[in-house]
């Protein structure tokens, strides 16, 4: 584990890959069924599938919800990295317990509660993956604003996607400076590997010194430009909010999507009472 980690942080971990995955996740799938939904409907949908499974113990219902959110996740064409993170997340929370119990021949009474817990975690995670990854960030920001989230949060979401590629490139270049000019300890032995890992962690820390100064320069231009472009004026203006949200329109398809989800949930409920 230690070895893998030490090799992963700087050497194999490609910033380009990460950047492209995040951007792909945000904008690469804006022509899917999920991305076309009204963000308000999706957020309400998320409110249901992100909360209700916690309160339910019924296996059939959970399984039903899980299948539904799995379908929506597939429909949203989420980037591979996010799915991987989802897998790791579920596994590290409860999945590994389930696996261990099963391997050591635990009986149904031991497995069942774990399975239910795992299903809950997986369903809720996938629901969030569907909504937050499947939706275009700007539409998501507008949706959140409609529900009364502070304007600054919705600005932050859009801005984060704008700044991320630039920040990553800068960070990558700073790290490259360290990589080309630095002299990391040899890492053939175990002790060397530990030292190497410590070195890398230290470098990442150090890298934030130039990054902070460089980003400070950028932030100044950005905030000055925001000032000129009326950001603060808009933040306090009701009329602007209305214009922004005017872009949100419920379509018949949104209704169909909601009704289909409802139908599915009702069907699993029925099935649950019959079994």
């Amino acid at each position: 584990m230690m070895q893998k980690l030490s090799e992963n942080i700087l050497d194999k971990f490609s910033m380009d890959f990460l950047r492209s995955q995040v951007l792909k996740n945000a904008y690469g799938n804006n022509d899917t069924v999920i991305a076309a939904r009204d963000p308000r409907v999706l957020l309400a949908w998320y409110l249901f599938f992100g909360l209700v499974p916690w309160f339910v113990q019924d296996m059939t219902f959970l399984l039903g919800c899980f299948v539904l959110v799995m379908i929506t996740t597939l429909l949203a064409r989420v980037a591979g990295l996010v799915l991987l993170l989802f897998g790791v997340g579920v596994f590290s929370q409860t999945g590994y317990l389930l696996l261990v119990t099963w391997l050591f021949g635990g009986d149904a009474s031991a497995i069942m509660p774990l399975l239910i817990l795992t299903l809950k975690v997986a369903t809720i995670s996938l629901a969030s993956v569907t909504v937050f990854s499947g939706l275009d960030p700007d539409r998501l920001a507008n949706g959140l604003m409609w529900y009364g989230c502070p304007e600054r949060l919705s600005f932050s979401i859009s801005y984060a996607y704008r700044i991320l590629p630039m920040l990553m490139e800068e960070f990558q270049n700073v790290l490259l400076s360290y990589r080309l000019r630095g002299n990391p300890p040899a890492h053939d032995t175990f002790a060397g590997k530990v030292r190497y890992l410590a070195y890398q962690v230290k470098i990442i820390m150090y890298a934030f010194y130039p990054l902070m100064l460089n980003t400070a320069k950028r932030s100044r231009t950005t905030v000055e430009a925001l000032e000129i472009r009326g950001y603060r004026y808009a933040a306090t203006n009701k009329e602007v909010r209305r214009i922004k949200l005017a872009g949100l329109r419920l379509t018949w398809d949104d209704g169909i999507f909601a009704a289909l989800s409802l139908l599915w949930v009702a069907a699993t409920l029925l099935l649950g009472t019959l079994v």
């Binding site: 904008y27 700007d138 950028r218 231009t221 950005t222």
Partner: peptide, 13 residues
Amino acid sequence: YVYQDFENQIVRP
């Protein structure tokens, strides 16, 4: 106004 470091002036994706 267009800044010299104009890329920081662009805030939307």
